[in-house]
Measured scan of single mutants.
Amino acid sequence: SGNANTETLPSGWEQRKDPHGRTYYVDHNTRTTTWERPQPLPPGWERR
């Protein structure tokens, strides 16, 4: 039932692989990409 990797990503993020097989992350909220895995927001924090 779903990929465990995507469940731990913050809302709006997606994990992808480039043509060389390297994993990167897409932030659909800001339309940016990063090599660093995004950290889920700490409990009690809200994204503004």
Rank of each mutant, 00 (worst) to 15 (best):
S1G: 10
S1T: 13
S1E: 08
S1D: 09
S1K: 15
S1I: 09
S1Y: 05
S1R: 00
S1Q: 04
G2V: 10
G2T: 15
G2L: 12
G2C: 13
G2R: 12
G2Q: 13
N3D: 11
N3T: 12
A4H: 13
A4G: 13
A4Q: 08
A4L: 14
N5M: 08
N5D: 10
N5S: 10
T6H: 12
T6K: 15
T6D: 14
T6G: 12
T6C: 13
T6M: 13
E7Y: 09
E7H: 11
E7R: 05
E7G: 04
E7V: 08
E7K: 07
T8N: 10
T8C: 10
T8Y: 11
T8A: 09
T8V: 12
T8Q: 12
L9R: 04
L9Y: 02
L9D: 05
P10Q: 04
P10H: 00
P10A: 03
P10K: 02
S11N: 08
S11G: 10
G12M: 01
G12A: 01
G12V: 00
W13G: 03
W13Y: 09
W13H: 00
W13S: 03
W13A: 03
W13T: 03
E14T: 06
E14C: 04
E14L: 03
E14V: 05
Q15T: 13
Q15H: 10
Q15V: 13
Q15C: 05
R16N: 00
R16G: 06
R16L: 10
R16Q: 09
R16C: 10
K17T: 12
K17G: 03
K17Y: 08
K17N: 07
K17Q: 13
K17S: 11
K17I: 07
D18L: 01
D18G: 03
D18K: 00
D18Q: 04
D18V: 01
D18T: 09
P19S: 10
P19V: 06
P19D: 14
P19W: 04
P19L: 05
P19F: 07
H20Q: 14
H20K: 13
H20W: 07
H20R: 13
H20M: 12
G21Q: 03
G21S: 02
G21N: 09
G21H: 06
G21D: 08
R22K: 12
R22M: 08
R22D: 11
R22C: 11
T23L: 10
T23V: 12
T23H: 04
T23K: 06
T23Q: 02
T23S: 10
T23W: 03
Y24K: 01
Y25Q: 06
Y25T: 04
Y25N: 01
Y25R: 03
V26F: 04
D27K: 01
H28Q: 04
H28V: 07
H28A: 05
H28G: 08
H28K: 08
H28S: 09
H28T: 08
H28M: 08
N29I: 02
N29H: 08
N29F: 04
N29A: 07
N29E: 09
N29Y: 00
N29D: 08
T30W: 01
T30A: 07
T30E: 04
T30R: 07
T30Y: 01
R31E: 09
R31W: 02
R31N: 11
R31F: 02
T32N: 09
T32E: 05
T32K: 06
T33C: 12
T33V: 05
T33P: 00
T34L: 01
T34K: 03
T34E: 02
T34Q: 07
T34G: 03
T34P: 00
W35C: 03
W35V: 04
W35Y: 12
W35A: 06
W35F: 12
W35D: 04
W35I: 03
W35P: 05
E36K: 14
E36G: 08
E36D: 14
E36V: 15
R37T: 09
R37C: 06
R37H: 04
R37K: 14
P38N: 01
P38A: 02
P38Q: 02
P38K: 01
P38E: 01
P38V: 01
Q39R: 13
Q39C: 09
Q39K: 13
P40G: 11
P40Q: 08
P40W: 05
P40V: 11
P40F: 08
P40N: 15
L41I: 14
L41M: 13
L41N: 14
L41K: 13
L41E: 10
L41S: 14
P42K: 13
P42S: 11
P42A: 11
P43I: 06
P43F: 10
P43L: 08
P43R: 10
P43M: 12
P43E: 13
G44I: 04
G44R: 07
G44P: 13
G44S: 11
G44C: 11
W45P: 15
W45N: 15
W45A: 15
W45D: 15
E46Y: 05
E46N: 10
E46G: 10
R47H: 14
R47W: 08
R47M: 12
R48D: 15
R48P: 15
R48I: 10
R48E: 15
R48W: 07
R48A: 15
R48C: 07
